[in-house]
Amino acid sequence: MLGYIDKIKEISKRLLDEGKVDMIIGFKKGTMPMMNEPCFVKTPDEASKLVWDSNCGINLANYLTDRKEKIGVIAKGCDSRNIVTHIIENKIKRENLVIIGVPCKGMIDRRKISAMFDAEVRQVSEEGDAIIVKGNGFEEKLKKSDLLQDNCSTCIHRNPALYDELAAPLVEEQKDIDKYADVRKIETMQPSEKWDYFDNLLSGCLRCYACRNACPLCYCPTCFVDEANPQWVGKSQDETDIRTFHFLRAYHCAGRCTDCGACERACPVGINVRAFTKKLEKDCFEMFGWEAGISIEKRPPLDTFKPDDPGKFIK
């Protein structure tokens, strides 16, 4: 994916030069290994600072919400699906966007890589399908496919769903992927096991809300956990309140979540927040044949009614 960057810079520069956009939203090189920082570029000269590699996991749709400028945005598969969702939900106007699509081969999981080594990982670079990890006194060449973020390894929409420009030829989509093996594992548990599983999952939660804030779907002006009048949820570290936040947030993402992994990636204590959202994503797929963000023409299942909607849960 390193090869994409010249094309991304070229397109960005051209769009700014021609005045087609006021700004480009993309990534610049981070100060930490395996991290890039979302940034904006407003002049053609600055386009040279844009980067693209396997560390661009942050979902840039999150940076478009309610913006009024003409924006060129760099979008991999999941970003583009969230941009589609944004357009459907009137959070951005299609005509204000030039989408620079990036066919994606997956982002690497920095936590997985750090956890593989006892010593601190100080430098990570990539060469084709290899990831080279360096620290004090060690250097290892690893296969990128073993290091992908969990959601990337099961992704079946690597190519952008909506784009105006392409940074590279489309890539082949992954086939024969068992996307929901982890959800099914939970589904087979007894109720008490399920309860304990989620208790354990959330035991480290700090309520920093990084998962919510990294999520492009979570754009409510005031989140329900921040409502003060009435106050729906307590503010302490009580586990009931923590769980209420997580499962209600997941419900708010039902039929909208693209499993982009932004929530999980952002969590400072490494909670797999997707354990909640993925169940709803699976249900939407199985009950309504719905995958979020694929088309701007179709309305989401939760804002339409069809006589044949499944309703077995209603007695």
Binding site: E37, Y63, L206, R212, A214, P268
Partner: peptide, 16 residues
């Protein structure tokens, strides 16, 4: 503007 652009306003920095 540049420094704050990427910020998602989570509490990670302050809580850690």
């Amino acid at each position: 503007e540049d420094v704050s652009f990427a910020c998602i306003n989570c509490g990670t920095c302050t809580y850690l």
